[in-house]
Simulated scan of single mutants.
Amino acid sequence: MKVGLFFGSFNPIHVGHLIIANVAHQSTELDQVWFIVSPQNPFKKNKNLLHEFDRYDLVQAAIEDDYHFRVNDVEFQMPRPSYTVDTLAVLTEKHPDHSFTLIIGEDNLGSFTKWKNHQVILDHYGLIVYPRPNAQKSDLTEHANVRLIEAPEMDISATLIRKMIRANRSIKYLVPARVEEIIQARKLFI
């Protein structure tokens, strides 16, 4: 099975994430897209970051009706901070019958060479890259294992969504209805 891995804090997951995941699935040979919920980095305290289990629940609620999507908590059990290359190694060991590819924004491509063991990721897994507003061009776009896809340039911000929640403004259409229900019921981000 060919799986695209979409890493993020998803704080909260929003329609921009879902659109990108869907476009990546539809425009490539991917069988599934797995949302990898990244736990809080202990070296970067962020008082706005929901507990990882709440964020996992929100992703699960957002994708529950799409059998091409899965949510994964592999990094919850890993040493922190977790590095993408280490997560890929764990997933490859757990799922030897799967091939994994990273889904990243074009804005991350410019700094990709600073990632731990970036060459291992490029050589053994590859990248599916979606456009991001104002992203710097990278020489990596010419790499054989880097695939650029056409997708809407999403500029929906989880930061803005959190501000709107705190200001008691509607987040309708920015997040799936089920996600909005959970946020309201659990009084998240207030």
Rank of each mutant, 00 (worst) to 15 (best):
I182P: 08
D73R: 13
H14A: 07
F43S: 10
V33S: 05
W115N: 06
E64S: 12
D57Q: 15
P176N: 08
L109R: 01
E142V: 04
A62Q: 11
A21K: 04
N22A: 02
P39G: 02
P96E: 05
Q26R: 15
H95M: 10
V33M: 08
F189A: 05
F76T: 04
E180K: 12
R55M: 02
H68T: 11
T28C: 08
L140H: 06
M154L: 14
P79Y: 07
M164S: 07
L188C: 09
I171W: 00
I149Q: 03
E29P: 05
Y67F: 09
R169P: 02
P176G: 01
H98E: 04
R132L: 10
R147Q: 14
A21L: 02
W34R: 02
D31P: 12
D123L: 11
P42Y: 10
T113S: 10
R70N: 12
V146W: 09
H98N: 11
T28I: 12
D86K: 11
L140P: 05
Q119E: 15
P39D: 02
K172C: 07
N41S: 09
K47I: 11
S27R: 14
E64H: 14
F53Y: 15
P79F: 04
Y83H: 06
L109P: 07
R132D: 00
Q32F: 12
K47M: 06
H118M: 08
I156G: 04
